[in-house]
Structure formats: C-alpha cells, structure tokens
Amino acid sequence: MEQTSLRQAPDGKGKFKKMLTTEFYLLVFLVAILVMMRIAAPDFYSLNTIMTVLNYFSYLLIAAIGMNLIIITSNIDVAAGAIMSVVAIVIAFVGKTGAPLPVFMAVGMVVGLVLSWVNGLFITKLKIPAIVATLATTQLFVGALPLVVEGSIYDLPASFTWLAFRAKLFGALPASVVFAAVITVGFMLFMRYSRFSKKLYAVGNNKYAATLTGINVNKVMILAFVIAGPLYGIAGTIIATGGQRVTTTMANGFEMTLIAAVVLGGTSIAGGSGKIIGTVLGAFILSLITPAMNYIGMSSDWSDAVMGGIILLAVVVASISTLTKKKKTIVVPDAVVSASASSSGEVK
C-alpha cells in the first residue's frame, strides 16, 4: 500500500483518495456489521460472545499473519492446517506429562518452524511451485499423524488447558488475545521498519529484479516460511489447549480460512503487496460471520456461502477500484494502458 500512495498525484484530492484503500473499505464494512448487530441482536454484545469471538479471532489472526508473509513473497501455503494439526498432537504428548505452557508452546513453535522450513526448501531448492509442493507435504503430514497416534490423546491435565480455561487478563480477556495483540503489533513494526520486510515485498513483486538488486531470493522465501512456522505453532497451541482432548485432525482444512482472511485483507495472491492491518480486519470479519448469523436467527448452514460471497465481493470491489483508478490517472497511449491493465490481472 506504501507503493500505491507514492503513485498518487500530490494534489488536493490526493489526501482523500489516499484514504480509499482496501483497509478503509474493510473497516467501513466491519463497522457496518457491528452496527447492524447492535440493532438486530443486542444480545450479541454480551461479554461472553465477544470473548468467544476474540478467542477464535486470536488464533486465526496469528496464523494468518504467517500466511500473509508467505503470500507477500508470491508463494502460498496449503500445508498450514496440516502443520497445526501436527503441532497440536506433539504438544499434547508433551503436555500429558504435566509440562507447563511455556515448555509445550516452545515445542510447538519448533515443530512448526521445522515443518514450514521443509516446505520452504521444497519450493526454493527444488523449484516446485508453492501450491503443489505444500499440497504434497500436506498429504505426508496428515497421513503420518494417525500412524503415530491411535485415536485421540485425552484426559490432559489442568496445566495443559490452563491457557484456555484459566489464563484471563482482568478475569475476562483470554490470554490468547494478548498473544495475538503482541504478535500483531510486533509484526506491524517489523513490516514498517525492518529492511528484511522490504525484501519480502521486492521478492514478491519481481523475483528477477530482486535478484539483480542483490537480494538472495531463495533465502528470503525460506525465511518467510521459517517465520510463519512458529506462528502456526502458537496458533496450533491455542487450538489444542481449548479442551482436554486433542485429535489428529484438529486443524486440517484451516488453511483455506487463513488464505481467505489474508485475501480479504487486501493482500494480492500475486505477491508484493499487503498490509498486516488488512489481515487483522479480514480475520476479524471472518471470525464474526458464524456467531453473528446465529444471533440474528439465521441457520449456520449458510455461513460457508456468506463467507465465499464476502471474499468474492471484497476482491471484486478491490479489482474494480484499481481498474478504474488506472483508467483515470494514467494518460498515456492506449497500448500501454491495456498492457498494464492486463498485466495486473492474470498472474503467473
């Protein structure tokens, strides 16, 4: 988004136009939902509902930030859910012994890091496109779990569920939300001030150009996966500690929701763009859908359709606004306009 604002003409209208980013539209949409809920179902604003929504939001967001980094480098990770399932089982083994949260969460982060690193290696060293490489490793991770664990791990001690059951700030706010807040702020600062984050965008924008400016593209890509891994580890820990039992399929399929949150947040799947704040808004909207529908009396049967519709609407709005913006601002020969318009679309 930094780039977009640079491109804007520095006239009077520029300032207002600058505000009309994807994040702005998302914020308006989010406020609209919240206001509508206030009118249609005031019950929705009970402490409990809010905290339930926030807890789901917290682990969705933590993992989505990792996914966002990967997507910025123009890769994608469909193994995220499988990695979190592996994390959940591993930490359940550790937690069964009565180990405290810092211990098994650290183990979870290491497991996430290693598995995600393997994905990064496949993609960079063997030059396998990310979507198929992670598709293949998903099958390995998902298939291996039931061989190691027969059934589920249950009767986990109180030290394991402490995070979900007891750890509350001011007696109400789940600790997982604090984790999410710290991680989000940390990554917002990181994306803004670190030099490495500039490399992420550069690699995502144009690999070859990045190579020419002396960036080690493979290293940046692997690092994106390596950073995402521990985030999956934390998210997996929050999911697993939600109850006294951990099953082998706890987070399978969750990657679709992560990708949806990132895309809804305005990150282009083509790479090179996307802000953490967008992902925050995207994740928050997605975590509201099911409970909000339940409160206004709609069956949750429709929640998938609503989620798909919102994602589609969001990308369509974003696309139309960029398409029209381009037509207005650039006054150059026709051929160039059509070329730039088409190159911004279908991306390989």
Binding site: L47, M51, T161, A164, G243
Partner: peptide, 13 residues
C-alpha cells in the same frame, strides 16, 4: 466434552 471445555474457557461463565 466441547460444552464442558467451552464453559471452562468462557470469559464470564
């Protein structure tokens, strides 16, 4: 068990 666990983790029970 999910009901039991969610009750435990509810902010205001």
């Amino acid at each position: 068990p999910a009901l039991g666990a969610q009750y435990e983790s509810a902010a205001s029970k």
